[in-house]
Amino acid sequence: MNYYVPRGGLPPQTDLTTDRAVFTESYAVLPRRTMSDITASLLPHWNGTRAWVLARPLSGFAETFSQYIVEVSSGGGSDRPDADPGAEAVVFVVDGALTLTLDGVEHVLDAGGYAFLAPGARWTLHNHGPATATFHWIRKTYQQVDGIEVPESFVTREQDVDGVEMPDTNGAWKTQRFVDPTDIRHDMHVNIVSFEPGGAIPFPETHVMEHGLYILEGKAVYLLNKDWVEVQAGDFLWLRAFCPQACYAGGPSRFRYLLYKDTNRHAGLQLGLS
């Protein structure tokens, strides 16, 4: 597997300031150069760790989720990773190796390792290896529904999850789904979407799901509302609900991204509730 990993640092004074960063009422683009030393954050109860916060609930921005890229130094980690008992999460490792202890069971996650952490799960995460490790952390407040059980936590790897071809694409467009889309217990999906060179979303999708989209590999031209934007590995996109979206993967390599969406719940009937 090939995953883009940010390394921090700071652009030299000789670089042009002009870049592709865009923040609008319907979408945002955070180019990979945004992930510099001066934009990193520290998290409570995490040692030897820094994070780039890509999205957070905010008026006029993400409403349903937060998303981080987290870098853990050798010996770093946390015994108290998340103080919110109502938060569910996905952890996806893109570099190095991390030891996840989940409800008393230890799992070693290397690149491609994926864990769904149910609300209320007891977990810790540590880097016992010699090299820095990096992972994506997507969090959402779980929406409990009367009569529907809370889903259980699980651990898997991208390498063990087959891609499902989208109809009539001859494999040019595939989605690796880590959760059965018919499992109504889950109110969010975090999948990996792949396009072979020349593959495309051939119409402007417009739907109720909000998206967080981190590009793991390759480059493409993406339709965001009315704008065609060039994007590449390491960029993050936020797409508001109903924002028209499509893309063309130009090559020369595959174009792949980690995709968040909220799903399987009624729309809230008060502004700001869902």
Rank of each mutant, 00 (worst) to 15 (best):
D227M: 03
Y257A: 08
I38M: 05
V193I: 14
T64L: 06
P252T: 05
D160M: 02
R177V: 09
T14Q: 02
C247R: 08
G218H: 06
F65R: 05
F154T: 07
V208E: 14
T49Y: 00
A83S: 13
C243P: 09
G48C: 11
H186R: 12
R240Q: 15
A87D: 07
V221T: 15
T182R: 14
T39E: 06
E205R: 11
Q232D: 12
A89L: 04
Q232Y: 02
P197C: 09
V221N: 11
A62C: 14
G129E: 14
V161S: 00
D103N: 15
L100N: 10
V105D: 15
M35V: 06
R80A: 08
L223F: 08
W137Q: 09
G77K: 02
P81M: 07
H126T: 13
V22R: 14
T169A: 08
R256Q: 15
F65E: 00
E210T: 09
D162A: 15
V29Q: 02
V90T: 12
T14M: 05
I192D: 10
R139C: 10
I184D: 11
D180R: 10
E63P: 00
G268Q: 10
L117A: 10
Y142T: 08
K219L: 00
A233G: 12
E71I: 02
Y4G: 01
S41F: 03
W228P: 01
G48K: 07
A28D: 09
N2Q: 07
F178L: 09
F92V: 02
A115L: 07
T169R: 06
Q232T: 13
Q159A: 15
T156E: 02
L125Q: 06
L259I: 10
L271T: 14
R240I: 00
V91F: 07
F195Q: 01
N127P: 15
P85N: 00
V208I: 07
I201E: 08
L273A: 04
V90G: 01
S274R: 14
D183M: 08
Y142A: 03
I69C: 10
D15L: 09
T17C: 00
A267D: 14
H189Y: 14
G268I: 04
G163L: 08
L237A: 12
N47Q: 10
D19F: 00
